[in-house]
Amino acid sequence: MTIRPIRAAAVTTAAAALLGAGALPAAAHPYRPAAVVAGHADSLHPEDGVWDAEHHRFLVGSLRHGTVSAVRPDGSVRTLVDDPEHLVSVIGIQLDRARGRVLVANADPGVGLRHDPAKVVAGIGAYDLETGQRLFYTDLAAVAADGGRHFANDIALGPGGEAYVTDSFSPLVYRVRPDGRASVLVRDDRLATPAGAFGLNGIVRIGSTLLIGKYDDGTLWRLALDRPAELRPVAVAGPRPIGLDGLLSTGGSTLRGVTNTLGGSGADSLVDLRSPDGWRTAVLTVRAAADPAPTALVAGPGGSVYELSGRMDLLFQGVPDDRFTLRRV
Rank of each mutant, 00 (worst) to 15 (best):
M1R: 12
T2W: 00
T2Y: 00
I3M: 07
R7E: 15
V11A: 13
T13I: 13
L18G: 15
L19V: 14
G20Y: 15
P25Y: 01
H29E: 15
A34I: 06
V36N: 02
D42Y: 11
L44A: 08
E47S: 12
W51Q: 03
E54Q: 09
R57F: 00
L59V: 01
G61V: 04
R64W: 12
H65R: 12
H65E: 10
V68K: 01
V71M: 07
P73G: 04
D74A: 05
S76M: 05
R78I: 13
T79Y: 04
L80R: 06
D83P: 00
P84H: 12
P84T: 14
E85A: 14
L87V: 14
L87E: 03
V90A: 04
V90C: 04
I91R: 07
G92C: 10
I93E: 08
D96I: 10
A98F: 11
R99I: 00
P109G: 11
P109T: 11
P109W: 07
V111L: 08
D116E: 13
G123Q: 05
I124D: 05
I124G: 06
A126G: 13
Y127I: 07
D128P: 01
G132K: 10
G132R: 09
G132Y: 11
Q133P: 03
A141I: 05
V143W: 08
A144G: 12
R149P: 01
R149A: 15
E162I: 09
A163D: 04
Y164W: 11
T166C: 07
F169K: 07
S170L: 03
S170I: 02
P171Y: 13
L172A: 08
L172G: 05
V173A: 05
Y174W: 11
V176Q: 06
D179N: 08
D179Y: 00
G180H: 05
R181W: 08
V184E: 05
L191D: 13
P194V: 13
G196I: 12
G196S: 08
L200G: 03
V204E: 14
V204A: 10
V204F: 07
G207H: 02
G207F: 02
G207C: 03
L211S: 07
Y215W: 15
L220S: 02
A229R: 15
E230M: 12
V234M: 07
V236K: 04
A237L: 07
G238D: 01
G238S: 06
D245A: 15
G246Y: 03
S249L: 10
T250H: 06
G251E: 09
G252F: 12
S253E: 15
S253I: 03
R256W: 11
L262Y: 05
G266S: 06
L270P: 02
L273M: 12
G278E: 02
T281A: 01
T281K: 03
T281M: 04
T281I: 03
A282D: 04
A282Y: 06
A282T: 06
T285F: 01
T285N: 00
D291Q: 13
P292Q: 02
P294I: 12
P294F: 14
A299V: 09
P301S: 07
G302S: 01
G303V: 10
G303E: 10
G303R: 08
S304V: 01
S304P: 01
Y306W: 02
Y306Q: 00
M312F: 14
D313Y: 06
Q317Y: 00
T325A: 13
T325S: 12
T325W: 14
R327V: 13
R328Q: 13
R328A: 09
V329H: 10
V329K: 06
